[in-house]
């Protein structure tokens, strides 16, 4: 019980720090119009994580309050299957980024080529999105290996 509370506090603290860092980055990029590496893409990754974490924390907070465990064998299996599936899809996503890089560069950033931070940011964003989609899918679907 105490271990669950400590875990939840740590997760919440990490999420708040991420939110603060994203807000600061957004302030620099949008309000002060300072040149930020990778444009606004680096905000996308933390935003996805923050949205997911808000759902996760609110659900787990209720559970910890009621004395339920934060994770069990089924929730661990869901994460494992979601991780495996998102890893497979991420391979194709990385291939797509490398093949269609000029298209992404022109449509998203209006440049001829993506720089390293934009490419990496796009790759990680895609992997994060795939993971969350698969996490929801396996959690709701029920049937696990």
């Amino acid at each position: 019980m105490k271990k669950n509370k400590i875990r939840l506090i740590l997760i919440t603290t990490g999420t708040i720090l991420l939110l603060v860092a994203s807000a600061l980055y957004g302030y620099l990029a949008l309000i002060k119009k300072e040149a930020t590496p990778g444009g606004l893409i680096p905000i996308l990754i933390p935003l996805i994580v923050i949205i997911f974490m808000m759902f996760f924390i609110s659900k787990r907070y209720k559970d910890v309050k009621e004395g339920m465990p934060m994770e069990d064998e089924r929730s661990k299996k869901v994460i494992m299957q979601a991780s495996a599936a998102s890893f497979q899809f991420s391979l194709y996503w990385l291939l797509a980024i490398s093949w269609f890089e000029p298209f992404f560069a022109r449509t998203l950033f209006g440049v001829e080529k993506l720089d390293a931070s934009q490419t990496v940011g796009g790759a990680i964003s895609g992997m994060a999105i795939f993971f969350f989609i698969f996490w929801f899918y396996y959690d709701k679907k029920g049937k696990l290996i």
Binding site: M68, P69, E73, S75, G142
Partner: peptide, 26 residues
């Protein structure tokens, strides 16, 4: 379902999916 989940030490959703035959327990 909550009582049973607490007794067994799992989350309530696990009991829900067990009863719906959507999850095979260890």
């Amino acid at each position: 379902q909550e009582d049973l989940a607490k007794k067994v030490g799992v989350r309530r959703e696990t009991i829900v999916y067990l009863e719906q035959n959507k999850y095979n327990p260890s």
